[in-house]
Design a protein around this nucleic acid. Structure first.
Lengths: 109, 109
DNA sequence: ACCTCACATCCAAAAATCTAGATGTGTAGA
DNA sequence: TCTACACATCTAGATTTTTGGATGTGAGGT
């Protein structure tokens, strides 16, 4: 059983990685295909250092996986990280609500 | 069919609302039960104006619903907003990947 | 009408994030 | 070993976000 209380900071890091238009665009580019930094850089038209900055945020959050091959770095979606993120967000709407049942009774009055 | 390309900004706003430890904590408090601002304020030990600021971000993102009753404002999870967010994040891991099939063939060589 | 309460909004300062040029690091080829 | 390349990291400045006290607003209560 995971203690959500102590993982809010980690959760926030994941959502923060998703909270940027360019990073979402990068994730879109990585859908299904590994790409090297230079390819992403050209697609998004970003300075190299800026791309590197955003890639680091995505990798640190666990959403993206980086693989070094010679001079190139290939990035790809980290499936397990993304599945974790999807699980996280599923817990938020709280479709199955058990707390505050007394309040529900109030509403039903 | 939704054009994801043009909705990255809206998506980013939703994830941005989730990209903060305190806001996640607030969503945790709201799981299943409506709460008034003062209750949340006491749980999180935040100045009133600061709480109001975070509640506005959550409401603007569509994740939380605010209801006025007399002097009090009651907040609750906006289920449809959260379901939309869950749908969004589901599209990111790209479990079903169709693009770049030529690259997959390369890998299989 | 006046007061208080619950909350929203304003505002200036503080903190965090982002940008992009400069520099550093590791790899590969000559 | 020298050079070029691909990318990471550093850095200072720009921009954005957050904070929290002050103030505004609307709903009761007296």
């Amino acid at each position: 059983m995971v203690c959500l209380e102590h993982s809010y900071i980690k959760q926030a890091a994941i959502f923060n990685a998703l909270a940027d238009e360019r990073r979402l665009r990068i994730l879109g580019l990585l859908k299904g295909c590994e790409r090297c930094a230079c390819a992403i850089k050209e697609s998004l038209d970003l300075p190299q250092s800026s791309l590197s900055y955003h890639m680091k945020i995505l990798c640190d959050s666990g959403l993206v996986y980086a693989r070094r091959e010679g001079k190139w770095t290939y990035y790809s979606i980290d499936r397990s990280g993304c599945l974790f993120a999807a699980e996280l967000i599923k817990t938020i709407p709280a479709i199955d609500t058990d707390c505050c049942s007394e309040q529900k009774e109030k509403i039903n009055e």
